[in-house]
Design a protein around this nucleic acid. Structure first.
Lengths: 158, 158
DNA sequence: CTCATTTCTTAATCTAGGTTAATGCATATT
DNA sequence: AATATGCATTAACCTAGATTAAGAAATGAG
């Protein structure tokens, strides 16, 4: 738990780094973002004074996100594990991880990519739920989902 | 903290209801969704066995979400406040609330609606950050954001 | 088993937002 | 001051996915 002074442009965490740290913004403004395969940046969140920024993902030790200072800033760095001392915390963190993934998907992935990710992540649910609900969860229409599925089959990517 | 037995189609919580409850799924499958102004349903999450479902929104007592059973299910109902006994929990809940809003926005709102919501919710950040970052946060291109802004000005909806 | 309702698929058309490219502004750098 | 680099805006075109519509398949109720 130490205090860090940052100047505009400093990068606190890179994709692939350990994600065991949590940063509390004491002053200034940071932001967290991903960069997709095409090199495009997608801003996941802004973190002004008083907010916490962290990559809270399901993968144990690989950050999905870059965290960077937009302005000169002061942050407190904590170990994430110190937050994990009770059950409700763990459940809440899992929820955040799922939502983080969902936001990144919605921002950066096409219908096909979203569907592929969904069936990989929730294979049991795919079986138990009507197509129109999956479409709605993915943020597309049932008609578009039909198209996606037949496109996938033709490509043997079933 | 009581146990509820649900049959397929039972609605646990409606938009506008108190959101002070958290449901732990012991068996079956539930889902949480919003309905937009046009009557269209947007599925926010599925909740199979072992998951928690709840509307964790910033507004104190008005759920944004409907929660409903897709299959016959058994859930444990808890008071949400019982989860709120320490600081890190409150911070985590705030993060979830923000992410919940963000997912709903990304799923159901047009570029104009997303921008309007953003400037209302984070007026300070709009001033401190380049346009291209706001566009990226909204999930649109800087060019599209330019269009949106000039469209808004013409409509006096500035 | 039959009729009704909902779900899924396919196809034709439409549109919001993406892509590309050119231009004007700022802010840096020498 | 002059040049360079990045940011914002505008406009012409393009494309993924929405909308609309109709038929086929599945599910359900009596």
């Amino acid at each position: 738990m130490k205090k860090l002074e940052l100047v505009k442009g400093d990068v606190l965490q890179r994709k692939g780094d350990s994600n065991s740290k949590v940063f509390l913004v004491e002053q200034g403004l940071l932001y967290a973002y991903t960069i997709d395969e095409k090199g495009k940046e997608h801003i996941f969140m802004f973190a002004p004074k008083g907010w916490i920024v962290a990559d809270i993902s399901l993968a144990p030790n690989t950050s999905e996100l870059y965290i960077e200072a937009i302005e000169d800033s002061v942050v407190i760095e904590k170990k994430r594990s110190s937050e994990l001392n009770n059950t409700s915390n763990i459940k809440l963190e899992r929820r955040i991880a799922v939502l983080q993934n969902r936001v990144i998907m919605l921002m950066s992935a096409s219908a096909i990519e979203r569907y592929s990710h969904f069936i990989k992540t929730y294979p049991e649910i795919v079986q138990r739920v009507p197509q129109r609900m999956i479409a709605s969860y993915l943020g597309i229409t049932p008609e578009a989902l039909s198209k996606v599925k037949s496109a996938k089959m033709k490509n043997n990517k079933k």
